[in-house]
Computed example of a mutant assay.
Amino acid sequence: MSNALSGNKQIGRVSSFKDLVTTDFKGVMNALCWHRNLEGDFAAIVSQLQLKDNITEILPEDLLALQLSERGNRAREIILNDLQLLANFGASPSLNLLKCYERDDELDFISTDVYSYHVDRSPIATDTFLCTYYGAASDIIPNHEAEQKTLIPEIRKKLKTLHQGPPEEFEDFLKENYFDLHYQAKPNAQPINLGIGHLWRLAVDHPKQQVLPCIHRAPKENEGEYRLLLIC
């Protein structure tokens, strides 16, 4: 594992899927990485898949229909195995071929799309799993290196102007519009790139969560290159 990951207290390191799903988050650790050096031609898979929209879900039968070399077949086996492991665990994984996500440019002072640093929230105990097999990979950032956007005075002032209801309903307004999920990196913050092929488990904001949720963002895509991403 790279020095950037191995020396970071936010990230727990495991060597198997079993450890990935059974290790508890604790303290400042709110991200777990099953670090892998995958062998296989994932580019061959991406080159044969058909993008129908900016984001296209790829089903197992889509993968099985591809004519691949030995290395391409190895990549396919890895993806199918990851999907099966997560499904057996009780998760609902989705494999996406991705050109870009939808941008949120409605407000010029705050963004609520996935390119903005954000946390995931759920009403039930769950985690976010993701793995980038090809293309640009996501970033996470230590919680102490980011500030909730709704607490930044100039942004909060504008949000209060946007809010039309009574002051006591302002916090509910922030939650209902997902403004409170988004963060801004502090000066000199050092984001951590999740890299290619590693399977990650990130802490989510839910009622039973014992740690801070993991702040993450989608990457800016590389020019002319799709992403192949497993997420659930």
Rank of each mutant, 00 (worst) to 15 (best):
H35S: 05
G27N: 03
S111Y: 04
Y101A: 14
H118Q: 04
D108T: 12
G27C: 03
L51K: 03
T56P: 02
L64F: 06
L107F: 09
L32M: 02
A87K: 14
K26A: 04
Q84K: 15
S111C: 12
R103I: 15
D113T: 06
L64C: 14
I55T: 11
R74H: 12
S116K: 05
K99T: 08
C100L: 11
G72I: 14
F25D: 00
M29E: 07
D53Y: 08
A87F: 11
A44F: 01
I78E: 12
I45W: 00
I110W: 02
T56R: 03
F109Q: 09
G27P: 01
L97F: 13
E39N: 10
I110L: 07
L80S: 10
E57A: 07
L98S: 09
L80D: 14
A31T: 00
L59H: 09
L32H: 00
S122C: 08
I79Y: 06
S69G: 15
S47V: 04
G90N: 10
Q84M: 15
S111L: 07
Y115M: 03
Y101K: 08
L49K: 01
Q67F: 11
E61W: 11
S69D: 12
L98R: 05
D53S: 10
F42N: 00
L64S: 13
R71D: 10
I110C: 05
S111D: 10
L107M: 13
D105I: 14
F89E: 12
G90P: 09
W34S: 00
I110S: 04
S47K: 12
N96C: 15
I110H: 02
F89P: 11
E106S: 15
H118P: 00
E57C: 04
P60G: 01
R36I: 01
H118R: 06
L83M: 13
F42G: 00
A44P: 00
N81A: 15
I58H: 04
C100A: 14
R103E: 10
S94N: 14
G72Y: 13
P93K: 03
E102L: 15
Q67T: 11
I45V: 07
D113R: 07
Q84W: 07
A31C: 05
H118N: 05
L66M: 12
E106M: 12
G40S: 05
